[in-house]
Design a protein around this nucleic acid. Structure first.
Lengths: 402, 402
DNA sequence: CCGGTTTAGTTTGCCGGATGAATTTATCCC
DNA sequence: GGGATAAATTCATCCGGCAAACTAAACCGG
């Protein structure tokens, strides 16, 4: 599970906050651990006294955020440790997504297990926002209801969208590939009575997908994530944290210009214009209505136009990512979405461009790897984003919810 | 003064740390304030009890980090507040810089006043690193000695270099325009006996210049900074903090590629290749040995080749900055160094390209402004970086120094 | 089987430091 | 000179982390 939300760094230390803060430290220590840890290990890892940790853990267990496992038979002397693990099925984050050809919901608990999931495939280009969001809410309603009926506390919902979304207030500014502009997404979702109590945190699809990717990789990785859907989105991950930017609009790698002098408008040379799905299909001589599978088939068959199209796109992708790496100093590039599927065809070119263009490559070569977060990573990332609010300050969350 | 160094966010809260942390909060509250604040104001601003703040402030005064000013005659009833201000001339940060045509030292105290300064102009392209750094140390030696003789505690030194420098360990990886590569800068500076006790924090020139710029703008601004020296450097500033990246190599805007298909090598289309000082002079038909002044004269005279050269460079600059803005979501662009001097000639084109290419421009237009940090901002930024270590944890600093 | 050893977890008294209320100090105003 | 008002200090209280002592539950060697 990724770590905390950003917090005011110059915060004063108070007595009361101390407890709350350490409760969070303990919970994150348990949830982030690769293996179940004992109270004693946790104390050693965080530098707290064992007595202190015991008190915190008792609190977390009582709040059903943590559970004790059966002691594992060890061959060592001494009283066996009680392994601690995140509780299962007690708290859930709900991630929702509307994208160009599907929409869906996924609920995940603190242990990272998927508790429920619903996805519907459909072409939503140009669909009416109110209709689509009502349909999404209808999809989410039974999920939320079932969870609550089963005694699962729903910590909140998140909604991933393929566009520019304000970080806090959540209006969708523009989603070019859906044809949406200035949509009050939160309001439309809340309009559905079942979700009125759970206003979604809205965020960009690629940013949430990157969060899922960071979670899948454990241990606070840093990378630039590229999400090839119909458009090209992206995100920057630093030490396991999504880099949100000032308004939540960061990571728009698709709008990086790699060829400023290509057409009359400089945006004709943007990465999305050169390596977006439509551009690749066109360059490969495939009908614009076809899907990525058609391109993959053509590549498999060794079709020269398809090969050339993907090579050209890979060059643009590599150049754009090199610029990103030069500016934000990330050591790894993760290709997701369609670029994940095309990984074998684009890896070498992307790696070569990074090697050539990133100024620090001689001292810290960049890795290029495919996404591992599974299907619909933005739904997972949305659920994780919700759970991260619980992890950031469990005491506060327990006071307001629970 | 800019705020703290980044700190481990998931740190546990301890009793002992609480005092130290609040000491830092209080000190930063006083130093960052635009006007002198009283203990009571500080307590209200930070949400601490007045009693607590009093104790902290007493500690800071005793440590000569803060001083009390004379109460200003106010027209209100009640006991007049004692204004608190950063102490002057008690602690200094020393910023040093080696750049392509100058090298120098500047010492600054907590109040932001320049206590000492020495700059020597010289063309250092291709000069031997050991020789230059020894010369720099000789320049810094009397500055440090004089400060110490005057009872000023020297908090440390920083060294700005026009190249890629490792954040912590500080070897200079490469400085293309100096012709340096893999230089143990810290070791060479420390070799000078006067500086043996003050190993410099080494950092990129543009990153430190951006720190000075952030300081000059108060109030935690966010912007992308471009430093046009002989090469083109840059930095990202978010809420007043320099964004260092994983290794301290961030902000290399000069290596952003805006025209991937220009030459045989993709790097022929980098911003530095298109808008660096050499490129502009060449395009303007000026001899490569000439300086920026010659270009400014030609522009002033309406010389068409010069105008065209700068227009072309401005286009590349605007496109590169648009890519940066799309990726890191900054709302302002600050042009420093030669681009600061050329500001009047490049502003419109840069602003137009940002407006055209930055996807969020319709909702949050980007500002383009010239740098205000004065001459040799990297020296100032280096000194501020040193002082920031004091501000980050004054208690710790007092334990180890003082 | 039993005492010694080792490690995990709990109990307990202590202590640092934030806190709020009360107090003192310093000014303005009538 | 006597309120009124606000700043700063003093003081008793309380919270929570801490170290040490203690209990619990395993292993081991005889």
């Amino acid at each position: 599970m990724p770590t905390t939300e950003p917090r005011d760094p110059s915060r004063v230390a108070r007595q009361a906050q101390m407890r709350d803060q350490n409760l969070g430290v303990a919970l994150r220590g348990i949830v982030d651990a690769a293996e179940p840890v004992s109270r004693a290990q946790l104390a050693a890892a965080e530098g707290l006294a064992r007595a202190t940790v015991s008190g915190l853990v008792d609190h977390l267990i009582e709040a059903r955020l943590v559970r004790e496992l059966d002691p594992t038979p060890t061959q060592r002397a001494g009283r066996p440790a009680v392994p601690l693990a995140p509780a299962r099925g007690t708290v859930a984050g709900v991630g929702m997504e509307v994208n160009v050809d599907y929409l869906g919901v996924r609920a995940i608990d603190l242990a990272g297990d998927v508790l429920a999931e619903h996805v519907e495939l459909d072409d939503l280009r140009g669909a009416d926002a109110a209709v689509v969001l009502d349909r999404l809410a209808s999809l989410a309603e039974p999920v939320v209801d079932d969870l609550r009926a089963a005694g699962v506390r729903v910590a909140g919902t998140a909604l991933a969208l393929p566009g520019l979304v304000d970080r806090v207030t959540g209006p969708l500014r523009v989603a070019p590939n859906l044809g949406w502009r200035d949509v009050d997404v939160v309001g439309l979702v809340e309009a559905h009575p079942a979700l009125a109590a759970f206003p979604p945190r809205v965020a960009n699809e690629a940013n949430l997908a990157a969060r899922a990717e960071a979670h899948a990789r454990r241990g606070s990785p840093s990378f630039a994530y590229v999400s090839g859907e119909v458009g090209i989105g992206g995100a920057i991950v630093l030490d396991g944290e999504i880099f949100p930017g000032r308004h939540g609009w960061s990571g728009e790698i698709g709008h990086v210009v790699v060829d400023a002098f290509r057409g009359p408008r400089a945006s004709d040379g943007s990465l999305e214009a050169l390596a977006g799905q439509d551009a690749m299909l066109r360059a490969a001589g495939l009908p614009p209505t076809s899907r990525l599978d058609a391109l993959l088939d053509a590549l498999e068959a060794g079709e020269p136009r398809a090969t050339a199209a993907v090579a050209q796109a890979a060059r643009a992708l590599g150049v754009a990512l090199a610029s990103v790496a030069n500016v934000v100093d990330v050591g790894e590039v993760v290709l997701g979405g369609s670029f994940g599927q095309l990984f074998g065809y684009v890896h070498d070119e992307v790696a070569a461009r990074l090697d050539e263009l990133v100024i620090f490559a001689p001292w810290s070569p960049l890795r290029v790897s495919p996404a591992r977060a599974g299907q619909y990573p933005a739904m997972t990332g949305g659920a994780l984003a919700v759970l991260a609010t619980v992890l950031a300050d469990p005491a506060e969350w327990l006071r307001t919810h629970a």
